[in-house]
Simulated scan of single mutants.
Amino acid sequence: MGTRKKSSIGQGPAFSRRDFLVRSGLVGAGALSLPALLAACGDSTSPSGSTGTKTLSFDNWPEYIDAETVAAFAAASGINFKYTEGFNDNNEYFSKILPLLSQGKTIEADILAPTFWMAQRMLGLGWLQKLDLSKIPNAANLRSDLKDPAWDKGNQYSLPWQTGVAGLAYNIKATGREITSVEDLFAPEFKGKVGMLTEMRDTLGLVLMGLGKKIDQISTFDDAADGFDKIEKAKNDGQIRAFTGNDYIDDLSLGNFAVCVGWSGDVLQLGKDNPDVRFVIPEEGGTSWYDTMVWIKGSQNGDAVAEWMNYVYDPVNAARITAEVQYMSPVEGVRDELVKLGGDAAELAENPLLFPDDATLARLQSWGSLSEEEEAKFDERFSSIIGA
């Protein structure tokens, strides 16, 4: 298990945001062609549903909120709010909702929290409804670097929930030196003590950046073949000890992993208890990701959706969430609010993993879009390598 505190909210398993990634259903989810899915689902320009119902359901990743916000929002709004923690993996969740949404049926949740690339995929399938931004005035607090993504101009269909960075985590006692480069994952001195994530885009992304590639320019399997080959060779040679989800932090803390691919928020929390554990964005760069909030097709609770999104985009409420989950907030003004909270929260305001400078941000890269056909090829190859 990770170091993240339990929030005692929701009904999901007690894993953190990016816990062990079950790769079930990957190729099956890609087996239906995009045109066939589009025909079954319709498009994403359907009008907002009736908004009179005072209920709301949000299915999120585990351990991804503080202990107060859900109850505080329900009390302030009068909305019957159901918050659950059903996400463990983007592809797994996609496979779970595919049979219903592809047939034009509804799911229980009004809001889901897919990572941006999966949200883009869902938008293409017609599964998302347009947000009524006139009812979310606090959306103006969205960080400028997150506004108007290429796949969702004007943030009409999504608002970020939390953001983070994948880079290199290491145990200085096990490495005996600082870690600076992606190539350290392949250093002979760390043979058998290297960890990689089962989250394909983060592991593959870092390896490709180490090969000098720009991951936002990769659109075909052939573009990424060198990265897959390098990972597979490292596995076959015994360089890689294991592919893991969030449970990498246990091996990292114990020194079983000298160095591994890791997420900034996890290492930030672990480092409080174990100062030997460190995180670095390698010289080649790190992968930048964000999880979204999206309004699912068929939901009739548009007013409640907007009210929730507006609530968590208030910097005061967003800062409370940040103080707990310790990922980068998408909301401007959170840093000032953390200072006002004092104590440990105020210390977070000075942490470069939560508030990186412009030079650091310039070294981060994000994946572009993949077609359904290419996505299936990526998933199949990566699953064969990691043994999923």
Rank of each mutant, 00 (worst) to 15 (best):
T3I: 05
S7R: 10
F15T: 06
D19Y: 04
G30A: 15
T45L: 13
S46T: 14
T55E: 04
I65R: 05
A72G: 03
A74H: 04
K82C: 00
Y83I: 02
T84D: 14
N88T: 13
N88F: 08
E92A: 03
E92H: 03
Y93T: 10
G104D: 07
G104S: 12
F116W: 13
Q120Y: 08
L125D: 01
G126M: 02
P137T: 09
D145W: 06
D145A: 14
D148S: 11
S158W: 05
W161T: 13
G167Q: 00
G167P: 00
A169T: 11
K173F: 10
T180F: 09
G195P: 01
G205V: 01
L206S: 12
D216M: 09
D216R: 13
D223C: 08
G227E: 07
E232G: 13
A234R: 07
F243V: 06
L254D: 13
V259H: 02
S264M: 03
D266A: 13
D266V: 07
D266G: 09
D273P: 04
F279E: 00
F279R: 02
E283W: 08
G285Y: 00
M293Y: 12
S299F: 14
D303M: 01
W308M: 14
V316Y: 07
A319E: 13
E324W: 05
E337D: 14
E337Y: 04
A349T: 07
E350C: 03
L354M: 06
R363Y: 09
G368Y: 10
G368E: 14
K377D: 03
R381L: 05
